[in-house]
Design a binder for these strands. Structure first.
Lengths: 416, 416
DNA sequence: CATACTTTGTTCGTTATCTGAACAAAGTGG
DNA sequence: CCACTTTGTTCAGATAACGAACAAAGTATG
């Protein structure tokens, strides 16, 4: 009778503390993939009895299972606990300027299904929303088996996102959307929680969990696509700034005498190395030297990349010039934020060393940290899927931080 | 007999938890200045009985005292607990390029004594260390009464500080110091813990606790002195970067065609608006127009500031040009970090609106956030004392985070 | 292969933190 | 003046995590 009254004083009383402890054990099992009760007790500095109790609670959730025994350490062999990566699935949606992509992942960030479709997202919000739903349905149909619960939906959007108002989109970047994402239709349609963040931030998150940023607490992710954006992992977390607009590397001032940008500045990085700028520059060079792989057709950013990979001198010159401008911006980032690594993502990242080499050269020349540039500037490991995977990772991160977000069937701990 | 064995399993067992709880209550009392046990219980969601026990423990430390009763809320009047700001003192030392300053503060950041002396710090490490000790002694003699324990010593240095190796100083900034601070002599001499950090970081910390950054979790502090540096409060904490070199705003690239800087870059902010650059620019303008307050003597940064404050056109032009260059850097900081505020410190901050007005103008023109510039760019409230006060604040912050750092006489809880 | 020793995981009594109820002291308000 | 509040303390009770004991299952070693 008395215990029914519990739960008012949540912070310091048993239930909440126990949940936090249980969550920290769950995170440990996730991190280690396989681990025994005794090993958890040693590493978490808990008693084996406490760990046993907590693990009993985790087993009934289905997120953890016993899978045989491990090697003996000189005594009885331990029972191996394994995190069940397939206990749930997550939808990660990337909304680009001209496409929608959807990744269905398991709880280890593995892509179970991938859907991608071009669409004039910028000018057709309603169609874009419908397409997101359609691609999500396809992905679920293709990659989910019936036992797997949908933990949540993450969406990467090409606009700054204010954490206090996540459905708001920038009217400058996406005028036709009138400042509203209207993405809650996804949550309603699929009956799962929805999380939204900026695409570069989520690219950074994806690289932190699964790619070139693993184990690094401070790094910058730079997305080189139609626009130029960056996401920053600071002290292990995405840094969003006071109003969610941190990481606008595209509007760093590179050349005060350069062309005007929509942001009002002259010579923004975006005006110098955004896709339109590179196309324009290629056209300019082609006029002088028509003997190029690019000649004949109208150049696009993709064809320039292809030509550069094929060794075309004009395309290479465009890339080298872009790398030099980017190098100044990277030097700025190094000076202001001192990341341990800089990771390049977005379409241009596929250029690999063609882009990296002149970039490292520029950064070395322009920083005290010349040793840094050699080792710590890299391309994305996740490539064009980083955004969608990062969106799914945002959901996973939230669930691992508080397991109630795993959206489990029945807590059912009370029954026993 | 058995309880003697306690203490091995520190993390989840009683003693450590109780200490953390007690510390959080202490921080609350510090924050509120005056508060009753019942009020603590309500806000911290603890029972009154628990709070009573914890407060009993705090009373014997001398950090908290009962000071009469407060207004009734319709029942018995509460006993008011007050944090004892005078229970200890802290030394904050600022090491500049050409001076040493020492602030003795209480536990509320109030300056009890202030010592300042010019000295060729850059070229005379041994003399600088001796001077620090001397000024600390003077400050203690002048401002401490015998009952007050020295909690610790903080030092602000004009060099990046790697948190993993805090006694290391940059050999580029301070070649004669050979990369070693040798500041542990201070700790030994005064028998108190020593904490070291970069001067701009500590200026930011001081403004966060006592000045223009109160209540703001994300802001930038820019120090305009002989050199140009910045400190960044991110998510409520000083951001130091992967190796402690974050915040080198002085080496942002402003003009790629500008003069070479020691960092290898062209047109660094430091080469454009550092004191030597402004002096050179003033001399240049004087050659054309000798009818200036500055004419006659060799200009210095101080005399330029004085002349600008007196309305001299040449000095004003120097300031306006500096503000425009600074504006580009501030726009970069806004784009990358999205701070809620930008605070200007260092010697030039005394120019106030003379500097702010052209700066706001430039930033407005060069950012999407024109509304931002109007309100959120301010000058320091602490002025030239920010560095030393911040150094003391670093010690205070550490002690409030873990009260064992208060360096108390006897824990003496065991006795009762 | 028998014996000594380890390690694992569970059970169960113990410990100690924090709680809640009860109470005296001290107040408000009609 | 009496009913009702609020504060701060005391004290018994709930309970989260622990430690000791134990059975099960292993290794090492003669």
């Amino acid at each position: 009778m008395k215990s029914v009254l519990a739960g008012k004083r949540a912070r310091h009383s048993g239930a909440a503390r126990r949940r936090r402890l249980s969550d920290s054990v769950l995170r440990r099992i996730w991190r280690e993939r396989e681990i025994s009760r005794a090993e958890i007790a040693r590493r978490a500095e808990l008693s084996r009895s406490t760990v046993s109790e907590i693990v009993d609670g985790l087993l009934v959730t289905g997120l953890v299972a016993e899978v045989g025994t491990g090697p003996s350490r000189g005594g009885r062999r331990p029972i191996v606990l394994r995190f069940q990566d397939g206990a749930g699935v997550i939808l990660g949606v990337e909304m680009g300027a001209t496409h929608i992509a959807v990744a269905l992942t398991d709880l280890r960030g593995r892509v179970l299904a991938w859907e991608h479709r071009y669409h004039p997202v910028r000018t057709d919000p309603a169609g874009a929303r419908a397409l997101m739903i359609e691609l999500c349905q396809c992905a679920l149909a293709a990659g989910r088996d019936d036992s797997q619960r949908l933990v949540g939906i993450g969406v990467a959007v090409p606009s700054p996102v204010d954490p206090t108002n996540p459905d708001h989109l920038s009217e400058l970047v996406l005028p036709a959307w009138h400042g509203r994402g209207g993405l809650e239709v996804l949550a309603q349609r699929f009956g799962a929680p929805l999380l939204v963040d900026n695409d570069a931030n989520l690219g950074a998150l994806a690289e932190q969990w699964w790619g070139a940023g693993r184990g690094i607490d401070d790094f910058a992710y730079i997305k080189l696509a139609t626009g130029i954006g960056s996401g920053h992992i600071i002290a292990g977390s995405i840094y969003r700034g006071a109003k969610g607009t941190a990481g606008e590397i595209g509007h760093l001032a590179i050349d005060p005498h350069g062309a005007l940008c929509i942001c009002g500045l002259r010579g923004c990085l975006a005006t110098l190395i955004g896709a339109p700028a590179l196309v324009a520059r290629a056209r300019e060079l082609l006029a002088r030297d028509p003997d190029s792989l690019l000649a004949g057709t109208e150049p696009t950013i993709t064809s320039i990349e292809d030509a550069a990979l094929a060794g075309d001198p004009i395309a290479l010159q465009v890339v080298v010039e872009a790398a030099e401008n980017l190098g100044i911006a990277v030097a700025d980032v190094l000076n202001l934020l001192n990341p341990a690594r800089v990771i390049l993502g977005g379409g241009m990242a596929r250029l690999g060393e063609i882009l990296l080499e002149p970039l490292r050269e520029t950064v070395s020349r322009r920083t005290l940290l010349s040793a840094f540039a050699d080792s710590a500037i890299q391309v994305s490991e996740l490539g064009p899927r980083a955004g969608a995977i990062g969106a799914a990772t945002l959901v996973l991160q939230s669930a691992l931080a508080d397991s109630r977000h795993f959206n489990l069937a029945t807590p059912s701990a009370e029954v026993a």
